[in-house]
Design a protein around this nucleic acid. Structure first.
Lengths: 339, 339
DNA sequence: CTGAAAGCGCTTACAG
DNA sequence: CTGAAAGCGCTTACAG
């Protein structure tokens, strides 16, 4: 095991001082150095396989380079994964590196986490508890709240909100002439807060629109349970029912259950999913879904990370408000056939 | 902004020396200290909101606490996510923290990454390129290879292999009396290596079993493309076809396409997916699938991380060989009905 | 237990 | 450009 290469080694080998090596490696343009020297030092560093000590760097500069992503225990269809990746891409342009914590849940032990990770900032996707907030404050690491859901007294701080998604579903169902509406989610041990937020949004929007209060349910993820609830919703009236589903998988379950109940999709029952996953287009009937723009969301969060680190991005350009879009398919096409 | 609390502050406040504080905070049981002192120091540290500097700690100890997970650009149905989380859970028991890199791809620039992250070790899920290998060696950070796929001259180093999954699919189809077999995947920009590995495994296994060479294809993810290929596979013979699918979503597409072609599932065509996702049970007909045991895989990887860090877990207990299991459902139930 | 000290590897002012 | 130095916050051997 060769001893790892330090700036002193590079300096000796290149025939310059440690100071010069440091200036070159950090690309300090404010320091006057000839291009020849810069190239030479970089060359030597590369040849020697110099890597640098992140710990020393962080200790000296008083701040880490790492953006720590603190995720709640969610498992939401890979949408979040795309969001995180995009944030990472944007943030890396500022020389920072995005890391996502993996492991037992961190709630209540953020102090221990921060004692091990030289973080430049922390991105929270849910409000922190008081103990964790306290730990964060003590550590001096800034927090960037990217809260996706509303909490009592703490509204979401992201562009896309759950209401907008449910609203798009409702609008679409109404437009397709479904006059009775319902909301259905399947139980997700890891996504309860999300499903509850959507159910709540459904009722709020119905009320705001002056629609008759539509039913909603969260059931176990088997076709029989879904069929039972569909049956209870449709037995009282022959009026077609439009169901907004928690996600595309739930929507598929509704389509299957409709078959069990002898209900035709989209004639007797319309279904619109969410996330616009591959399965929505591969199912038959194909499933209408809601797609949202995560790239713009990521851009907003990345901008706030920069701001928190005092790297004021001069991009005062207004971000396009998050767009939520319906992808209409056969499962709600009451008038036309197929999709 | 209050200056952050250091060991010196805790020492002064507690009326002890910095050395004592350090011993207490690191729970150094080999140092003789009264329980009274320990409790007192911990109390003061908590009251002051001491957090500690990960950078200083890492610099001093010469090694970071962080296990860096380096993922290829895969997007494989959340299975990997579960694996990583389980690894994190196990590794945290040794006081390490698992972090997953998020951002633009790191290939070829591992050196820059290592210069920012005080890693204890790196877990690679795919072989590193020569430049990255070199960087890792220079940095002195150990690598734990957790390669899921076979590469030329570099076989997979995990318990579950792709062959085993495809083999389970084939076995199941044969057992269900499908005599003609085929393999179908949909194009996944982020999962090409995986689909190719599965296709390769399919052919290898067919050959090894002396089965007539079954056809395979990788098509775009729309029902029409799948229907076209199914048509070409079934037009020449009336013998039922058993199709092993890349994943459950693909399997759903096959079921849909079979409908388009006028082929009955499971009578004319049997389909078995992979990953055993929720959609497999919610589709109608329900879809047979392959489930694998990620927990045991994670255990193996965690053990190798410990070993790499010299924390020889004395658990020489043999790990249960990774189990891969068929979940039979209606899509392959030629004899019985439903599922 | 204390107290003084070294040293991890780096960055950065400073005098030349 | 150099060279000597300080100092980031910690751990740890050492003499008392």
């Amino acid at each position: 095991m060769t001893r790892s290469v330090r700036t002193a080694d590079v300096a000796r080998e290149a025939g310059v001082s440690r100071a010069t090596v440091s200036y070159v490696l950090n690309d300090r343009r404010d320091v006057r150095l000839s291009e020849t020297t810069r190239d030479h030092v970089l060359d030597v560093a590369r040849r020697l396989g110099y890597v640098g000590s992140p710990a020393a760097r962080a200790l000296r500069s008083g701040r880490g380079d790492m953006v720590l992503l603190l995720l709640p225990e969610w498992d939401v269809a890979g949408q979040i994964a795309l969001l995180l990746e995009e944030i990472g891409r944007l943030v890396s342009q500022h020389g920072l590196v995005c890391l996502r914590y993996e492991g037992p849940h961190w709630r209540g032990s953020l102090d221990r986490l921060l004692a091990r990770i030289p973080a430049a900032c922390v991105v929270s996707f849910d409000p922190l508890g008081t103990h964790d907030s306290q730990a964060l404050r003590s550590s001096g690491v800034p927090e960037v709240p990217a809260w996706l859901l509303n909490h009592p007294g703490q509204p979401h701080t992201t562009a896309i909100d759950q209401e907008a998604i449910v609203e798009a579903q409702i609008d679409h169902l109404l437009q397709q002439r479904y006059k009775r509406l319902a909301y259905l989610a399947v139980e997700e041990p890891r996504g309860q807060e999300f499903t509850q937020a959507r159910v709540g949004a459904f009722h709020d929007i119905c009320r705001a629109r002056g629609l008759s209060r539509g039913p909603s349910a969260v059931v176990t993820s088997d076709v029989e349970s879904i069929a039972a609830i569909l049956h209870s919703w449709t037995s009282s009236s022959a009026e077609p029912l439009g169901v907004a589903a928690w996600n595309d998988t739930t929507a598929l379950g509704i389509v299957s259950a409709a078959g069990v109940c002898g209900l035709e999709v989209p004639h007797h029952i319309g279904v619109v999913g969410a996330d616009d996953t591959m399965l929505a287009s591969l199912a038959r009937p194909s499933i209408s879904s809601v797609r949202f723009n995560l790239a713009s969301e990521a851009k907003g969060i990345a901008a706030r990370i920069s701001a928190a680190l005092g790297q004021g991005t001069d991009e005062t350009e207004m971000l396009p408000s998050a767009f939520v879009e319906i992808v209409p398919r056969a499962s709600t096409a009451k008038t036309t056939m197929d999709g």
